[in-house]
Amino acid sequence: MKVSTLSKGLAFGAALLAFTPGAMADMNAELVIDGVTLITRAPAPEHMNINEIISGWVYRSDETQAMQMDDFDNPGMLAVDAAAIAWETAEGDAGKSCASCHNDAASMAGLRTEMPRYNEAAGDLWSLEEYINDCRTERMGAEAWGWNSTDMINMTALISIQSRGMPMNVAIDGPAAPFWEQGREMYYTRFGQLELACANCHEDNYGNMIRADHLSQGQTNGFPVYRLKTTSLNSQHNRFRGCIRDTRAETFAIGSPEFKALELYVASRGNGLSVEGPSVRN
């Protein structure tokens, strides 16, 4: 049965209730963790069609916002604790741990702000997960972690928090440019039976409600994110996969070149927002 684009559009429009969320989010709240104020609103980078970029934290309910403001209340910190132990644990043939070469995890400060980035030696765009696995397989003689495995997500949380507060700053020019272009094209491409592009929700309708969800800009500065729904940490690719699957499309694979390109583009839409990882979302 062919459903006309118009009726699909109307159906989509109907799903977006245009009432003010009110009690659901304090849009003017400030995110302060351990005395450090994080940047949750910033002028949008030049390449974008909107004026202000806003962290997903701003769109969440008071209770959810509060959960992220205290490192103890934030269940994502359990992952950071677990990874801190893994950081010191020797693994693999070389008998090394992360600490053997990198000393303190604090040496990772700044790394998260640049991810994903072009890796000269590999001649490819690399996500943080690939840098981690490269160390494991090439320098530790250990087995690679699955992209979406608990070990990997925990480690990305440990590395992300070392940059907490620092503004995202991914490169989109030079060798990264073709990947960025690919990601940008994906962002504006309609996928699935529902024929939805990322932009339809996250650029055209952020701030509105989709059913009972307060739509955010789809920023990734908070990843890996502790989702209240799954009560576990989620990676960016996992979230992309979920979104695309929800448009009733055949989704790309976690770790695929398409998702890495998309990761770069989406990260660039957040350049200027503070790294929050691990964050708390719904």
Binding site: F72, L78, A82
Partner: peptide, 8 residues
């Protein structure tokens, strides 16, 4: 699996 307590 992986049960870790955290206390403040």
């Amino acid at each position: 699996e992986n049960v870790t307590p955290r206390v403040r």
